[in-house]
Amino acid sequence: MTMLPQLIFGYFAAVIVLLSLLVITRKNPVHSVMWMLLLFFHIAAMYLFLNAEFIAAIQVIVYAGAILVLFLFVVLLLNLKEELEADRFVGSWPVAVLVSGGIFLGLASVLRSFVIGRQGSFTVELIQKVTHTKTLGLIMYTEYLFPFEIASLILLIAVIGAIVLAKKRMRSH
């Protein structure tokens, strides 16, 4: 039974990588969005696995529920037929393979020298006892109150900005 977490992780990890690749390689953007939806659910599950229920919920609600729907809307504006006939990659994609591969190797090589730092006070038991949402809320509204307010401001700007940008211009000239 000791192998169970590893097995579960292995499953999720494999699926996440696979889905990521599918997202970026599908010719049809609608398919990409669909695979991404599945990907976000898997990531949310992984968050649960890491004792972060609130984040998992946010992941589903915000990413899957809001952002992806937005993507879907935009994709539906496009002419899919034309899209399916066009090239999916730019001409310089082999360079991109090298660069992204290099960055992956770089990041992976860093891990060898990784050392775990000082342990914090939020043990798994504590979080399970108080619940994740409440502990997160306690930190968010005390220590991170100011950034929290800024985040709300960013969202406000995003709302206004999106409206201004996407609004159909009156032909004034």
Partner: peptide, 28 residues
């Protein structure tokens, strides 16, 4: 999770916020 510290979660929370904002602006 491994450091038993919730600050990472807070950061994720903010990243999701920014991602949402960025997606809406970007798509616009």
């Amino acid at each position: 999770h491994y450091l038993q510290d919730l600050r990472g979660h807070v950061l994720v929370f903010f990243i999701i916020t920014v991602a949402a904002a960025e997606a809406s602006i970007g798509l616009a």
